[in-house]
Design a protein around this nucleic acid. Structure first.
Lengths: 248, 248
DNA sequence: TTATATCCATGATCTAGATCAATTTGTGTG
DNA sequence: CACACAAATTGATCTAGATCATGGATATAA
């Protein structure tokens, strides 16, 4: 795959490769995305209800907490973060989302978005109006199964994150996080060891329940120990085995 | 509702009220459970695939991490906890489950259970073999929608728990936890202020990312401040408003 | 009933990571 | 390109909550 040669890939490269209105069957994300297992007619029907968005700039919101729920979104290019807040304004980054991943699944039940989703870089999404999705889902059990499976995957990820937040030390948190990113980049055809951190140190810290300063210090420590090299947002994992051992 | 008069309800009281093989349409959990919105034939089909378990004793496992995934479970009476572990044996309580709530939703994607589920008291469940559920789901879109909605609800709950674990102080954690229990008891027709904690202090502490000692101390502090009264496992919320204000 | 184990409460001490403070580096904008 | 502002690093200090230690209360079993 061409992208593998690119040492510092950004997910929005994908946006340039794809044309704006590429159909699901021609999309490079096909095998990571919802349509997996759908064929011909079904795929066409799905295509019809999807709106492919114009781009979102860094910091722009896809939706905000309390907005009424209308659509699920799949990241097409770039990346997003979701956050929720306490009543007195403290914020928690609940997730980062990369191409092929769903945003808004936790809104289905409450019928309003439970979080705010913001682009971390220039990004685009596919919008799936939930009503339409249900309509066509009635005659496409496979689509429902896919949705269910996606939800289940996110749920499992969140449980792991609970373990991380509740029981891991700061070093273990960082190591776990880096390896999780690594896996997701690899799944998308990019290098598992060399990639760009599209989120700020602050976002990482917040997501892992740490202070920014702690993240900075541990990144420095990891570099001293030869585990990673870091140049601004570009990171390179130098010793995956020792990183794995550090996850706890 | 009769239960409301009982000042110290235990969810396994429900088990005594219900007969062992009560059908979904006659089950007191109906409106909290999966069948909501299903009728007649559909309900009967669902009934047919459900296995109603014999009881589980305190500490007994429903399934363990890594077991291959076969069924979803709905708590019929009593309560359960789920836990996941780091490779070096540290454990995190990822959730508590009360009557009408689903256990095992995070296993669908991985096709193996991602956690261990243990009974906290004498309990029983309805077992829903996932394959059968998918079979009948093909002709019952409403069933799929229900499942999806359930998953979404748990997802939203887990996101809130991330906020709790990542950003709240120990007092805020406890207050939030007590009010969450209160709501769930209330939804089940029990008192919102007086109930039994079926889980140990250790389980609570673990779930909230605290030490047992901290939980003990804060319970004592809350009593001194007239927020709650506590007698062993029996708790009474004396000042819901101040508790709410304490959630952060 | 007593034995034995587990759970719970409370005090004393310690520490991982937060907070505060000062620099440096990076970045968008006129 | 230089200004202004946000992000990141590094060091010094502080503190919320963990850990350690002890004694009392509860539960389970023979």
């Amino acid at each position: 795959m061409a992208q593998s040669n690119n040492v510092t890939p950004l997910f929005n490269d994908l946006a340039k490769i794809e044309h704006d209105h590429v159909a699901c069957q021609d999309c490079s994300l096909y095998r990571l995305c919802l349509p997996l297992g759908l064929h011909n007619n079904d795929l066409n029907k799905l295509d019809e209800i999807i709106t492919r968005s114009q781009g979102y700039k860094r910091g722009q919101s896809l939706f905000s907490e309390e907005n009424s729920f209308k659509s699920l979104y799949v990241v097409r290019s770039g990346s997003f973060k979701t956050t929720i807040s306490t009543s007195n304004g403290r914020e928690q980054v609940t997730g980062f989302y990369f191409p092929g991943e769903f945003i808004g699944l936790d809104a289905i039940h409450h019928e309003s978005y439970q979080s705010t989703a913001k682009a971390l870089e220039s990004s685009s999404v596919c919008e799936l109006p939930y009503d339409s999705l249900q309509d066509i889902g009635k005659e496409m059990p496979q689509l429902q199964v896919q949705l269910l499976t996606r939800l289940s995957k996110e749920l499992a990820g969140d449980k792991s994150l609970m373990l991380l937040l509740g029981k891991k030390t700061s070093k273990e948190k960082l190591a776990t996080y880096l390896l999780s990113l690594s896996k997701r980049f690899h799944d998308r055809g990019f290098s598992a060891t060399d990639f760009q951190l599209s989120m700020s140190r602050g976002d990482i810290a917040n997501h892992l329940g740490l202070a920014v300063e702690t993240v900075s210090r541990i990144f420095s420590r990891f570099q001293e120990e030869g585990l990673i090299t870091l140049d601004g947002k570009a990171i390179s994992l130098q010793d995956m085995d020792r990183l794995k051992a550090l996850c706890g």
